[in-house]
Nucleic acid binder design. Structure first.
Length: 302
DNA sequence: AAATGTCTCAACCGCACAGAA
DNA sequence: TTTCTGTGCGGTTGAGACATT
């Protein structure tokens, strides 16, 4: 029984989105919120499939997205998380507010992979490349299934059993727990792979805790709070949660100027099951849609 | 200046999963 | 329990940008 296509593809547009299409999609979602994606294109008057709309929104139009290259600290975090999680881009992205799985995946494939190879690290296993003959013998002898690393407590980045992208995504409870638990760097050493001496703080400057500026949702939202680094702590009280500063792209000044922080009222903060900060930009969209209408049209659609 | 090669990243594809009927 | 639908995810593609010859 073959799966039905996500939509009737006949007559549907593909390829890059136009500004007009973006406008329609944004307008629709601002007005109606995210509903059944399959219905979105019809209701929004788009000749796209729902999946395409969802992707466009989540990867590009969402107002809480950061744009631009990953910072050094973000990149280091991606490397560390990849060492633990493998190609689970969505899980990795979940630890980097404002970043999408697609963005991280692309960045990994185009930048980080090369960087690691250059440093003599196998980007798949996070182990040094060109092992010695002795190592190769040992690897052949132990070609049998690899035991999962006992290290799930965050003491280092060693080969993870599921680095194989072909591995089914279904994880056992313990693994799932480790994967979804918030990434809490205990100290700078957490970022340094025990097996990857080539990766050291000399190569990538560590961000000191005091350098991580987390803006207060109510008072400290200002363009000066440009750090995007986030750390999460399951013990933190909801009141302690603070919104990460969002680096608004120039073309996405959705709420008007950066000084105009009205838009933040639209975001509700919550702690998801993992104890991470979750942002739901839509919880108040409906209520605010009308007042946003004007701001939206100021939004510089290129 | 033109041709060619390389890189980047937005978008697409197909599979898997969860939940509803 | 089975089937269907909606959504999420990871891998791949291809157009455009950029670099090199």
């Amino acid at each position: 029984m073959g799966r039905q296509p996500c939509c009737d593809k006949v007559g549907l547009k593909k390829g890059p989105w136009t500004a007009e299409e973006d406008k329609k999609l944004i307008n629709f979602i601002l007005t109606n919120g995210q509903c059944c994606w399959r219905a979105v294109p019809k209701l929004a008057g788009l000749l796209r499939c729902g999946k395409s709309c969802r992707l466009r929104w989540t990867n590009y139009l969402r107002p809480d997205l950061k744009r631009g290259l990953l910072s050094e600290s973000e990149e280091q975090m991606v490397i560390d998380l990849h060492a633990r999680l493998g190609n689970r881009w969505s899980k990795i992205a979940g630890q980097l507010p404002g970043r999408t799985d697609n963005e991280i995946k692309n960045h990994w494939n185009t930048h980080i992979r090369k960087k690691l190879k250059k440093m003599g690290i196998d980007p798949l296993t996070h182990k040094p490349l060109n092992p010695t003959e002795e190592d190769q013998k040992q690897q052949l002898q132990h070609a049998a299934p690899v035991d999962p690393p006992a290290d799930q407590a965050g003491t280092g980045s060693v080969l993870v059993k599921d680095a194989d992208p072909q591995k089914p995504m279904k994880a056992d409870a313990e693994e799932e727990k480790s994967c979804t638990s918030p990434f809490i760097p205990m100290d700078a050493n957490d970022f340094v792979s025990a097996d990857s001496p080539a990766f050291c703080t000399d190569e990538v400057p560590m961000v000191q805790p005091d350098e991580i500026i987390v803006p207060c949702a109510s008072a400290s939202i200002s363009p000066s709070c440009s750090s995007s680094s986030s750390s999460s702590n399951s013990s933190v009280k909801p009141d302690d949660h603070q919104l990460p500063w969002i680096d608004w792209p120039e073309s996405m000044s959705l709420w008007g100027s950066l000084e105009d922080t009205r838009g933040w009222d639209l975001f509700s903060c919550d702690i998801d099951g993992d104890g991470r900060l979750a942002m739901d930009p839509f919880s108040n969209y409906q209520r605010a849609a009308a007042s946003l209408e004007q701001d939206y049209w100021n939004f510089a659609l290129l």
